[in-house]
Design a protein around this nucleic acid. Structure first.
Lengths: 340, 340
DNA sequence: CAATTCCTTGCCATCGTTGGCAGGGAAACA
DNA sequence: TGTTTCCCTGCCAACGATGGCAAGGAATTG
């Protein structure tokens, strides 16, 4: 009564060694059973399996990863975690990874190159088997470093010209066309775009599509674009700037739904009715867009499909490290609701 | 010229061994420098640091974790990833973990015990240093198993009576009081509650608070509660059921904002004006709630603070595994907007 | 019955790191 | 100059798993 029982419940987890000792075979044999590899006789296999069950053995994935150089871990680097867009994308990626036994590190760069660098290092240090990333514009070199350390990288929504980096993109240039054409078909002719601050210094398909689509309208295409944050506030600020430039503004094409919603609120605050006086169209089709009033007209991009395709591409790159230049483009479609 | 240069760019990452060989010291010495431990002379330290810099050495965290039994990895098990509530919580947790050098596995149980079990195993197998979880009700035993494998567990919003499991909760019973009192103060007397399906078989503070707060209204408290999914659709379906029971319904208290929004949409669809005919109050104060129209009145629960506190508690449990019974309660407040 | 083959199993090294301990050299003391 | 002390440094084992190879035994063949 005086010696307290060793707390069996907090014991170290059993290892291959413990199972081997218990059954009376070698560690190597147990390992073969665990990995379902040929060798062990049926009788041995059964005894080992029983011990595994009974002792609640679970393989140590750190140790296994050290030898096999596979951690069954994936990294997702989003931009903003609280943007519902990424949440839905993460869901698609997680679901796809899940089927293959992968667990996902979810992180966010907050759009800062320094943070992105830290995160990428952190992922590589932990032996991630691949990285799916919404790259911060202008920090492509970081991705190249990762890829050259033999970690597959898939870039989302932004093509990077490097033989070891794949990409999955939406055809947002086409999406911009659809949006602007819809605005024009409904009689709008003073159309501005709220673009992303991240797109300011690079060619961005949504902007390109927008510029092309309004180029014949007879006013300065460049002034029709405002760069701002990809947030609700950013959208509100951006539309205020557009109104300053064009008091007769009657159509807005926003880089994301979130920005479009900010724009709608700001327009209402200045007493302009949406869509009666100004139409607003976004891009993404986040769940929220169907819930706000007026419900947002938007260019739908399929995030579940994106997640699946990105993970599949990663797996292909893993299987064949020499594979080169993979770029996939996913179709988009216009969802017409009430805002435009 | 005939022998192609070994592609330096895709070489294996350098190890302690490589650094040691390059500088001409032992692996042990390099390890000491990397970990900033006393021993190496200043001159040696400098030479090693230079080599580390020059060869771009990064420690292999799998190998380190194997020895030290620390992976600098945290697991977060949410319920639904696409619920903005969790996205904002994840953000708080990630920010807190980040400061301490931890990376976060983000996963979702989808409310299914089986999935929760798989995820927990997966996290433990990868040597996670701790788990923060929104537990599936009725599957508490799974958490206990994890805790007894010496992995700290912090449960969110649901207390589990076990010495090795901590919890961080919001005072949602008080929140329910605030909500119902506000409804009554604004003249409502036929008030129903949309509760969570997960709460059907257990005592749930929000329900308890609700029941107490309407107990003197003179109608059957039990019939005033409907259990439904924590989704937009769930909210819509639930409010339809409440209307069937009480055609003169004039107040709704929902388990979450998302459900409240679904309820608002369903009420509008039946021609009932919010808040003129029926008031709606939610719980959470997700970003979305300020954006929908009418803007949602809600019980605000602070998710950033929650994330920080949960991570801090995990660290305390790690530091002192014998620590027992930690339960923290975070205050809530009513945010009055337009819906009620 | 001896030789060959196949099936099963075990031993040893390895992955990249850290912990414990011992040893070498220089500095400090007597 | 001999001895003690204190820095530094390096060797070996360990963490928990897998890979390559060899060895033991049974089964098959000549």
């Amino acid at each position: 009564m005086e010696i307290p029982e060793a707390s069996a419940s907090t014991n170290r987890a059993p290892t291959l060694h413990d199972i081997a000792a218990h059954v009376g075979v070698s560690v190597r044999t147990v390992s073969r059973v665990v990995n379902d590899r040929p060798g062990p006789a049926e009788a041995t296999r059964q005894r080992v399996l029983e011990a595994i069950e009974h002792m609640e053995y679970r393989p140590n994935l750190l140790a296994r990863g050290l030898v096999t150089r596979q951690s069954f871990t994936l990294g997702l680097v989003a931009t903003y975690l609280n943007d519902p867009f990424f949440a839905e994308l993460a869901r698609g990626i997680q679901a796809a990874g899940d089927r293959l036994g992968y667990l996902v590190y979810l992180t966010s760069s907050e759009g800062e190159p320094g943070r992105q660098q830290d995160i990428l290092r952190s992922l590589v240090d932990r032996g991630s088997d691949g990285v799916i990333i919404f790259p911060v514009r202008g920090a492509e070199q970081q991705l190249i470093s990762v890829a050259e350390r033999s970690v597959p990288v898939v870039s989302i929504d932004h093509r990077i010209e490097h033989p070891r980096i794949g990409s999955v993109e939406w055809d947002t240039e086409h999406g911009a066309h659809l949006a602007v054409e819809h605005l024009r078909a409904t009689g709008r002719h003073r159309i501005g775009m709220l673009s992303s601050r991240m797109a300011e210094s690079v060619d961005e398909p949504r902007e390109t599509g927008f510029r092309k689509a309004i180029s014949d309208l007879g006013y300065d295409v460049d002034r029709a674009v405002v760069w701002t944050d990809e947030t609700v506030e950013g959208g509100a600020l951006g539309v205020a700037e557009l109104l300053r430039r064009y008091p007769d503004l009657d159509g807005v094409f926003a880089y994301t739904d979130i920005m479009a919603i900010g724009a709608m609120r700001a327009l209402e605050d200045t007493g302009r009715a949406v869509p009666d006086e100004v139409s607003v169209i976004g891009v993404d089709d986040v769940e929220l867009s169907a819930l706000v009033r007026p419900a947002l007209t938007t260019v739908r991009i399929d995030r579940e499909q994106m997640g699946t395709r990105a993970v599949e591409m990663l797996m292909r790159m893993r299987a064949d490290p020499a594979a080169v230049f993979q770029h996939e483009v996913i179709d988009v479609s216009l969802v017409v609701r009430d805002s435009g």
